[in-house]
Lab assay of single mutants.
Amino acid sequence: GGHPVTTQMVETVQNLAPNLHPEQIRYSLENTGSVEETVERYLRGDEFSFPP
């Protein structure tokens, strides 16, 4: 991942996926670069990993 992630982006995802840890959200956003894509992954039931 190398996309810039803002606190705003993390908070937006958190509102839609409250049971995800912020670190999981941030890591996913760094890989996708997209709030929409991260939320899609969540709704699909994809696994969210923590940063290594």
Rank of each mutant, 00 (worst) to 15 (best):
R41L: 11
L16Y: 12
V10Y: 06
V10A: 04
N15R: 14
L43W: 10
L29M: 01
G33I: 02
T32R: 00
P4Q: 14
S34V: 02
N31G: 08
G33Y: 06
E11F: 09
S28L: 07
P4T: 14
T12V: 13
G33Q: 07
V13C: 06
Q8G: 10
Y42I: 04
Q8T: 11
S28Y: 05
S28T: 04
R41V: 06
D46V: 08
D46I: 06
N15L: 15
V35K: 00
F48H: 02
Q24G: 01
L29F: 01
S34A: 04
Q24M: 04
E30Q: 14
P4W: 15
Q14S: 11
E37F: 05
V10N: 03
F50N: 03
Y42G: 01
A17T: 08
V13T: 06
A17Q: 03
T32Y: 06
G2H: 13
T6R: 04
E47S: 14
T7E: 14
T32Q: 02
V13G: 00
T7G: 09
P22K: 10
S49V: 15
P22G: 05
P4L: 14
L20I: 03
P4E: 13
N15S: 15
D46W: 10
S28W: 09
V10S: 02
E11G: 07
E40I: 14
R44N: 12
M9S: 03
E37C: 08
P51A: 07
E11A: 12
N31C: 12
Q8E: 15
Y42C: 00
R44Y: 05
F50T: 03
V5I: 12
H21D: 11
L20Y: 02
G33H: 08
L16T: 06
E37Y: 06
E30K: 07
F50G: 02
V35P: 05
S34P: 00
R41G: 08
A17K: 01
Y42H: 04
V13H: 02
E11N: 12
G45Y: 00
T38R: 00
T6N: 08
T12I: 14
R41H: 11
R44L: 08
E23C: 11
V5L: 06
E23A: 14
Q14E: 05
E40Y: 12
G33N: 07
G45C: 05
V35T: 06
T12H: 14
Q24V: 04
N31H: 13
T7R: 10
T32S: 08
E37Q: 09
L16N: 05
T38P: 00
E36W: 13
N31P: 00
R44P: 01
L43A: 07
I25W: 00
E47A: 13
E37K: 10
G33F: 07
T32A: 03
S34R: 02
F50E: 03
Q24W: 03
G2I: 13
L20F: 03
G2S: 14
P51T: 04
L16K: 08
L43P: 02
T12D: 12
P4G: 12
N31Y: 13
S28H: 07
T7L: 15
G2K: 15
G45I: 00
G2T: 13
S28I: 04
L16A: 10
R26H: 08
E30M: 13
P22H: 09
G2W: 14
E30A: 12
P52S: 09
Q8C: 11
T32M: 03
P52R: 05
V35G: 00
P52W: 08
R44M: 09
H21Y: 07
R44T: 07
L43F: 11
Q24A: 05
V10K: 04
N31W: 13
Q14I: 10
L29V: 01
Y27C: 04
F50S: 04
H3V: 11
Y42S: 02
M9Y: 02
R26Y: 10
V13I: 07
Q14L: 13
T7P: 15
M9D: 10
L20N: 01
E23D: 15
T7I: 14
S49G: 13
L20V: 02
G33A: 06
E36P: 07
V10E: 05
N15Y: 13
V35L: 08
N31I: 15
E40M: 14
P4K: 15
R26V: 08
P18I: 08
N19W: 09
M9K: 04
E36A: 12
H3L: 11
G33E: 04
S34Y: 01
E11P: 00
R41Y: 08
I25M: 00
Y27E: 07
V39D: 03
N15P: 06
P18Y: 06
G45L: 01
T12G: 07
V13D: 00
F48A: 01
F48T: 02
V39K: 01
S49Y: 13
V39Y: 12
V35W: 08
H21A: 11
V35M: 09
V5R: 00
G1R: 04
A17H: 04
L29G: 01
F50Q: 03
M9T: 03
H21P: 03
L16R: 11
L16I: 14
L43R: 11
E23R: 04
N15Q: 15
F50W: 15
S28D: 11
P51Q: 05
V39P: 02
H3R: 12
N19R: 09
Y27N: 07
M9R: 02
R44D: 06
L43Y: 10
D46M: 10
N31F: 15
E40C: 13
S49C: 10
P52T: 10
N15C: 10
Q24N: 01
F48E: 02
P18H: 08
L20H: 01
S28G: 03
D46Y: 10
P18T: 08
N31M: 15
E11H: 10
Q24T: 01
Q14A: 12
